[in-house]
Design a protein around this nucleic acid. Structure first.
Lengths: 111, 111
DNA sequence: TGTGTATATATGTTTTTTCGTATATGGTGG
DNA sequence: CCACCATATACGAAAAAACATATATACACA
């Protein structure tokens, strides 16, 4: 993966939220991400597909639900970039994390 | 600077080359960058202006020449991202570094 | 002041990206 | 098989980014 296409993947609000939330939470299903980010399901799904196609995310199906996670085989520099971005932008990420916490404390979309 | 706009700045070949070359060399004038990257002067100049406007680069004028460098006051996470990107992509950067070395060994554009 | 060099910007066009909406796919349970 | 849910994709429209080319600015030096 070229560095430019990697950075292109992070250069969108929806995609960056997905990546940073997954870096934080380990694994999430699409409905969790839709709730946390507050965008339409097709929009989130399209961006997730893009992140998977370029190798940043992996998926696992469980029944009706599709779980996304960071690809553990990312080049070290790319994983480090994601880690730094997550560390340095907790303020940017916080609202989505709060929404994620709320939907987890209640009956979640994927229980 | 929002993380998304920061990553947008790195999500272009010309801009990423500029940033990584400057990370490597400390300070370069526009003509050095034009030679190293092999793109037209207006194109490089436009991208440099964009990097300066978003706070990633600073400039210093010396006579006819304009020298660019990384902004030392970048947020720590952003500086770390640039560092990681430079470390992990020496292959991507190498051709430009070679061209830079050649033009430096000869009479340079800005001597 | 006038010429030459380095760099910046303006303009119109083309390409790329993103989007909303509609629809398709794939699995679950009746 | 059917109705339902979660997710994915297709498609045309709209918005954003990048481009080539021409021109402007700023400085140096005669």
């Amino acid at each position: 993966m070229s560095p430019v296409s990697f950075f292109k993947c992070l250069a969108d609000d929806t995609r960056l939220h997905c990546v940073l939330l997954l870096q934080h939470k380990g694994e999430l299903c699409v409905c969790d991400l839709v709730d946390a980010i507050g965008e339409s399901q097709p929009k989130v799904s399209r961006h997730l597909a893009q992140l998977r196609e370029c190798g940043i995310l992996l998926t696992r199906r469980e029944g009706q639900w599709m779980y996304y996670r960071l690809n553990p085989q990312l080049p070290a520099w790319a994983a480090a970039v994601i880690g730094q971005a997550a560390e340095g932008n907790s303020v940017y990420l916080k609202p989505a994390l709060v929404r994620l916490g709320k939907s987890e404390s209640q009956a979640s979309c994927c229980d």
